[in-house]
């Protein structure tokens, strides 16, 4: 959604390109922080910065609905869960088992190779868009699938994507049950075999504090 800044006569100032590159730069730098810093908690904070920048990019690409969903689900749920898990399991005092010396270099080699492949593919493709919207078989509905508004997203979710929508709710229900079953404490005593587990609500004594290093 290109919009113009009212700075004198700069009506065609490419603000959205500038903003995109700012968001992309911060996102990639924080992504690098996620994969390189030693303290996992700091990696978690960098990951949240990355998610917020990705939300900004979604808003720039014309879908603020997706941006708000990204904040709500990724930052509010996934990142919080990951930070909880970090607090429960982060042990800094254990001696580290030996690892292969070349592991970081092999990882770097694989990533660089993959990035080179993807970049060459992307930059040498000619993306031709003429007639795309009219040629898909699912465009028989009455809504305009070229406008990314929330109304259209809702309509498209209910027809023709109603079945995946219901299946997602089944997946989430299965996840809920499985996560509770996996994470509950195994109480073997017969006295309280009927107590429901509330492991997500009252976590065990956190395994680390920031000072243990």
């Amino acid at each position: 959604m290109p919009f113009s800044m009212d700075i004198y006569a700069w009506d065609s100032f490419p603000i959205d390109t500038l903003l995109f590159w700012c968001f992309a730069a911060v996102m990639l730098i924080s992504g690098l922080c996620v994969v390189t810093v030693k303290r996992v908690f700091h990696a978690g904070i960098a990951m949240i910065v990355c998610f917020v920048c990705a939300a900004g990019i979604y808003a720039l690409l014309g879908c603020p609905f997706m941006a708000a969903l990204q904040l709500l689900v990724y930052v509010g749920a996934i990142a919080t869960m990951l930070l909880f898990a970090v607090m429960l399991t982060d042990k800094m005092m254990e001696p580290r088992p030996n690892t292969t010396f070349f592991q970081p270099f092999m990882g770097l080699f694989a990533s660089v190779l993959l990035f080179g492949l993807l970049w060459l593919t992307v930059s040498s493709s000619k993306f031709g868009f003429a007639g795309w919207a009219n040629s898909t078989a699912a465009s028989s509905s009455a809504i305009d699938i070229t406008s990314l508004s929330t109304t259209n997203i809702g309509l498209r979710l209910l027809t023709p994507y109603a079945v995946p929508f219901e299946l997602i709710s089944v997946i989430i229900l299965a996840t809920l049950i499985a996560a509770i079953a996996l994470a509950r404490k195994e109480d073997r005593s017969p006295a309280d075999s009927g107590t429901p587990a509330d492991a997500p609500a009252s976590p065990a004594e956190p395994a680390s504090t920031p000072a243990k290093e």
Binding site: L69, L72, G76, A211
Partner: peptide, 27 residues
């Protein structure tokens, strides 16, 4: 915003994260 209410529900997620960080960082 035309997703105003969703935005208002989504932004307090940052508050949640920062309270968690504040609690844990205080050692």
């Amino acid at each position: 915003l035309n997703v105003g209410l969703l935005y208002i529900v989504a932004v307090p997620s940052l508050t949640v994260f920062s309270i968690l960080t504040a609690g844990w960082s205080s050692n």
